[in-house]
Computed example of a mutant assay.
Amino acid sequence: MSHTGWDITDDDRAQEGYQEARRAYLAGKAARHRRTAPGMTQTQLAGRVGMPRELIARPQQTPDALRAALAIVAPGRLDEMQATKDDAFAKAVEWQSLSPVRSWVLTWARDIEIARRPDLSSRFAHAQNRLEHEDPATAREALRELSAVLDEAMKAVRG
């Protein structure tokens, strides 16, 4: 048994998940070192190093399916998801409208789309890191890239 009281080798599914996450990490690490390839897109780079195009399948747009997907691709955001869900449902009751709930579903479907796709996730993180760059042109380009990633993810989840 490990020092945490839980031996990961006892759970085959957890071991497989760990191995998949480890492969994705190593593939991402390799991709970061190969970003000097001129004219290649993030998707092409990911393919070059054997990174999967998607970490998990796109979830259905239901609260339970989105929560389950988020627990895999970004478990650190589960509390944020629950807080925004509570807010959306409270607004739905107050406004007597389902639009806050629809908005919540689309927002989280979009964010999960980004997190489940290494190409989008990489572009999103890279742009976020440059948002407050001292060079205004670099910051503007980062903002354009963030918008492009968000738009691409939203188009994907809307079908």
Rank of each mutant, 00 (worst) to 15 (best):
P75T: 03
A69G: 02
S122N: 06
R116I: 04
R116G: 04
R110F: 02
R77Q: 14
R22Y: 04
L26G: 01
R32K: 10
Y25H: 10
T9C: 04
A115W: 07
A46Q: 07
Q44H: 04
P136Q: 12
E141S: 12
E94S: 13
G76T: 07
P75Q: 05
R140I: 02
S103A: 15
A139F: 10
P100E: 15
R58G: 00
Y25Q: 08
A127V: 09
T41A: 11
V157G: 14
K91H: 09
T138V: 15
S103E: 13
S103R: 14
I8Q: 05
R77A: 08
D11F: 11
Q61K: 12
L120I: 12
L131H: 05
T41V: 12
Q44S: 09
G159L: 10
R140C: 03
F89W: 15
R102P: 00
Q19E: 12
R116K: 11
T43F: 05
E20Y: 01
Y18S: 02
A153Q: 07
A31Q: 03
G76R: 13
L66R: 08
A137V: 13
E141L: 15
K91P: 01
A137D: 13
A142P: 11
A24R: 11
A27S: 09
M154Y: 08
L55W: 06
L78E: 09
P136W: 06
S121I: 01
H126T: 10
D119A: 15
A21V: 03
A142Y: 07
L143C: 05
P75W: 05
L106Y: 06
D79G: 06
Q42E: 15
D10G: 10
A68Q: 12
